[in-house]
Design a protein around this nucleic acid. Structure first.
Length: 294
DNA sequence: ACCTCGACCTGGGCGC
DNA sequence: TGCGCCCAGGTCGAGG
């Protein structure tokens, strides 16, 4: 009688739509701002160069237009580029001078999850919060950023023309891995995480355990088309917010209620009513419908 | 080539 | 009330 119930989902996973939402917010605020001082409260987040050089290197730099590839943000500077990966719980918040003191929680005490603060000369601040500290910050020279290892290991971004059916199909053809594992693999397609992989597979009627090389050409094409569709629809809603996720301007995303399967195991499939199953695939909790997904 | 597992983290749920 | 266990997961590295 006890059907599995999904636990309440805490935090959020910044996948492509969430990162792009943040990038768009930053694009409205960052270009032209000059960094006065970088404050690093959690040095382990800065892995290149060492955090002291990171702090020194950022002083006096001016932001250009932020870019994104997959889940990675590139904050270009007049000299050099900041690479930011939000991990699982990272947030980038732009704070203007009228708000609460940067990095402080309401009430005045220091926000324990504010780990990196870029204080600008005009009094505004870019505040990085990350409850689980899985995020990564790096400061590259402009040249290094072009060939950095994070970029080198990345497949095409599905919202760009780089994402092409031919390359996608051949990547699937040459592996026997579960299709879910392949879609999570950032070197095949950059930007999908557990949420949107589950959503995409449900939309295409494919079980997460299907072998990638066994998919028909028709299924591969449907997947290829569904991936950007699912991501764009989530992006139009400002991304998925579970509890405390905020975009760069502190807004919540509206995609949560639009999720069809993610986190809904134990509840009825919205297509057929059958109870959604839960299985571990590629080491991740997966929700799927045994009736709709073959 | 692919899989699993542990590590990195924290907070919320839940059993006792 | 409270403690401790388990889980969530992006990514990487180690070991099978």
């Amino acid at each position: 009688m006890t059907s599995p119930k999904a636990p309440p989902i805490m935090g959020f996973m910044p996948e492509l739509p969430e990162v792009e939402t943040i990038r768009r917010g930053l694009e409205r605020h960052l270009p032209g701002r000059r960094i006065r001082r970088a404050e690093v409260r959690a040095p382990q987040l800065v892995t290149h160069p060492d955090w002291e050089s990171f702090v020194i290197g950022l002083a006096g730099r001016t932001f250009g237009k932020p870019r994104r590839v997959g889940k990675i943000l590139f904050l270009d500077l007049d000299s050099g580029t900041l690479l930011v990966h939000l991990g699982m719980t990272g947030q980038l918040l732009f704070q203007d001078s009228a708000q609460t003191a940067p990095g402080n929680a309401v009430g005045g005490e220091q926000d324990p999850h504010a780990h990196i603060l870029l204080h600008h000369v005009d009094g505004t601040c870019l505040c990085y919060r990350d409850i689980r500290k899985f995020g990564k910050w790096r400061l590259y020279t402009t040249r290094e950023a072009l060939t950095c290892p994070e970029l080198a290991g990345l497949g095409p971004d599905p919202l760009t023309p780089d994402f092409a059916l031919e390359g996608f199909a051949s990547a699937l053809k040459r592996t026997t891995r579960h299709i879910k594992a392949v879609l999570l693999d950032q070197s095949v397609v950059a930007g999908m995480g557990n949420i949107y992989v589950d959503e995409t597979l449900h939309r295409c009627g494919l079980r997460p355990t299907r072998r990638a090389n066994k998919l028909s050409a028709r299924d591969v094409r449907r997947l290829f088309e569904a991936i950007p569709d699912v991501l764009k629809e989530a992006l139009e809603r400002g991304g998925t917010t579970f509890s405390d996720y905020r975009d760069a301007e502190g807004n919540r995303g509206q995609n949560g209620p639009a999720l069809r399967v993610y986190g809904r195991y134990g509840q009825p499939c919205l297509e057929c009513g059958q109870e959604l199953r839960r299985t571990t695939v590629a080491g991740r909790t997966s929700s799927w419908c045994a009736k709709c997904q073959k």
